[in-house]
Amino acid sequence: MAREDWGLDLMQRHRRLFTINADEPFRSFGYPFCGRGWRDLVDRLCGRIEGVLRDGETFEFVQIKQKIGVLRAVWDGDASEDTETKIGHAVNLAVARSACTCEICGREGRLFNNRGWLETRCAEDAVGETVPPRYGAGFENVRRFRRWRGHADMYFATYDRETDTLTEVLPPSPKQEG
């Protein structure tokens, strides 16, 4: 029995966001090279992007993968500044969710160091040692984000997994950033 290719299924459901190489779908730009535990968050990301694209605007994923334990989503397109800002927020939400979602099973997880490889895993799927929060205790779900593509303006936000929201917070003190 052939194993389901969730990446190809996702690309086919969101055709406006992908160009699919029919002969070798896994060689298509944007084919998701990440574990099936992130399937839902990548699907949510696609839905959010489709929801903000206007007629005449273009979007295509260039790359979707796990890097340093979190989702990396690279894209290209031609859209208004407002749409690009909304796309950037959707990507930031997906990245934040990936940082606390097991890439294997989709349950709540955290960052682990598996012999130098950083992976977000639940307690059951984890191998290696937990990585302490970058900004210290109490800052487990705080991340630094870019406001929108092509701009250097950065902000810090905490992610609430239950409500799937980001809330901007003050930057951690230099002592915490160590």
Rank of each mutant, 00 (worst) to 15 (best):
T158H: 13
L111D: 06
F112E: 01
V62I: 13
R134M: 11
G88W: 01
H151M: 09
V169W: 12
E108V: 03
R107Q: 11
D76Y: 05
H89Y: 14
K65S: 08
K65E: 08
A99D: 06
D43H: 10
Q66S: 11
L111F: 10
L45F: 09
L53V: 05
T120H: 07
V42L: 04
R146I: 14
E168P: 13
R44Y: 08
A73G: 04
F59G: 10
D153F: 03
G136R: 13
R48I: 00
L118T: 01
R39T: 02
D164W: 09
I49Q: 05
G37I: 05
G47K: 08
R36W: 08
Y155C: 05
E103N: 06
L71S: 08
F139K: 15
R107A: 07
S80E: 02
L41V: 09
E129H: 04
G116H: 06
R48A: 07
E140A: 14
I64L: 14
K65F: 09
H151T: 15
L93Q: 02
V70I: 14
I49V: 15
G51T: 01
W117C: 01
T163Q: 13
R146L: 09
G51C: 02
G56S: 03
E168H: 03
E50M: 08
F156K: 06
Q66P: 00
G37P: 12
T165Q: 15
R121T: 00
F59L: 10
E140G: 06
R147F: 05
G37V: 04
G150N: 02
W117A: 03
E60K: 15
E168R: 14
W75F: 14
I87Y: 05
